[in-house]
Amino acid sequence: MIRFTTLTRAALAATCALPFAAGAALAEYPERPITAIVPFPAGGSTDLMGRAAAQEFTRILGVDMPVTNVGGGAGTVGTAQIARARADGYTIGVIPAAPLINQPHMRDTPYSIDDFDYICKLFHSPQALALSPESEFSSLAEVVDYARENPGELTYGSPGPGSLPHLAMEVFLDETGVEIEHVPFQGDGPGVTALMGNHIDMYMAIFSNVGQYELDAVAIFAEDRVDAAPDLPTSIEEGFETTASWWGGIFAPAGLPDDVRVTLEDACAQVAESDDFQETLARFGSFAAYLDSDGVRAEVDEGSRVNGAILERVLD
């Protein structure tokens, strides 16, 4: 009898509190499903990361985590929705870096990087430069030397203006001081096709795509070689400084209650260590890459500063 009333009360409280959940610290967080917003359409790389992470969060936190895809505007629409959401821990975002560190420099976004509580960095995939099948270059240095002697003659493709591969290549061009023309495509599908058909000279791609499309990569922009392609030299080995990766993590609207934030941070660390999660990511050529709240915040700040400067130069 007593048990019954408690249950009923809890149910009532939960229901009534639902629309005003901000102050509802009645029960231990989390007590109902947590919505994970992915700011890209279903089926893309970010969506796959989000769904893999949601599965682990569900296991760890014991509540469902349905994924909602909010596509459009190069990720800005969904990211804005996350920033606008109630900061109660029941709406979190699985966001890749681009809508945070690139897009705010390209348009007026209704959010800035200060509008989020950074839970953790969770996944990354290094980027690699792939050459067209007819290309005669055999190393990154040869590409740079040729471009230095023939400025503006080579072309490189990217999955879109303001995408992480685009910015990575521009950072690299900035470092080396050479000129290679940018030809953006609408996603990797059309871009990789153009590369394989020799319509462009090279393509900056997330490493996972290099394996998937069996592209002819010349260097990987990372500190260390990756196990999946042990023969692929790194940009550092080739004597350059630029490293670049496609990465993202779990971010929430700013102002989470402390206990909620700690719970989410702990859960996120566990997700990153989970074997299942790492295995799923590995199938897509990506890796779990954990950084805690402060670490990822610093990376976002740094990325936004560097890419902001690059974009200012590229856009005008």
């Binding site: 190069a74 203006p161 953006p184």
Partner: peptide, 15 residues
């Protein structure tokens, strides 16, 4: 968003 440069256009100042 312009597919080539990434600039936004014809947006009547609406996000």
């Amino acid at each position: 968003q312009d597919p080539l440069t990434g600039d936004v256009r014809l947006h009547f100042s609406s996000f």
